[in-house]
């Protein structure tokens, strides 16, 4: 399927979707969003690109393998349980640090976010793996 419109749209949409997926991932703890939806967005950015340019070219343009991305996600999710053990608490107990705080703005980072990052990569990797093998024929 050769379509100039789709090609131009896909190459412009890809960076946008990637940035948007990170935003959705970060806001997910307290508002709608999160790792799963973010992961779907990240995956769909590359799937859109693959629909326009073909799977081979997409795989060349990215420097990772979808299976490894899934594995990385699982590792990160697993690692998010470990800080609790270091603090002497039960596995997966949430740990938080406040990086930046004043009256207007507060930046808190914690292990639930790290877990979400793991979900993000796992979902994106799995989605890409499935869709690439369907698109590839």
């Amino acid at each position: 399927m050769e379509s100039v419109l789709l090609k131009i749209a896909a190459s412009h949409m890809r960076p946008l979707l990637i940035v948007l997926s990170v935003v959705v991932l970060y806001r997910g703890h307290n508002e709608p969003g999160g790792g799963f939806i973010g992961g779907l967005m990240l995956g769909s950015a590359f799937i859109l690109y693959a629909m326009a340019y073909g799977v081979k070219k997409t795989q060349k343009s990215i420097f990772f393998d979808p299976v490894n991305l899934t594995g990385l996600g699982l590792l990160i999710a697993l690692a998010s349980g470990l800080p609790a053990i270091l603090m002497g608490e039960i596995f997966m107990t949430g740990q938080w640090i406040t990086l930046f705080s004043n009256t207007f703005f507060e930046l808190k980072l914690g292990t639930p976010l790290l877990f979400d990052v793991g979900v993000y990569f796992t979902v994106a990797g799995m989605l890409m793996l499935v869709m690439f093998s369907i698109l590839e024929e």
Partner: peptide, 12 residues
């Protein structure tokens, strides 16, 4: 988590 860890190692 042990099988999970082994699974990830074997995936890579």
């Amino acid at each position: 988590i042990l099988p999970l860890l082994f699974m990830v190692v074997l995936m890579f």
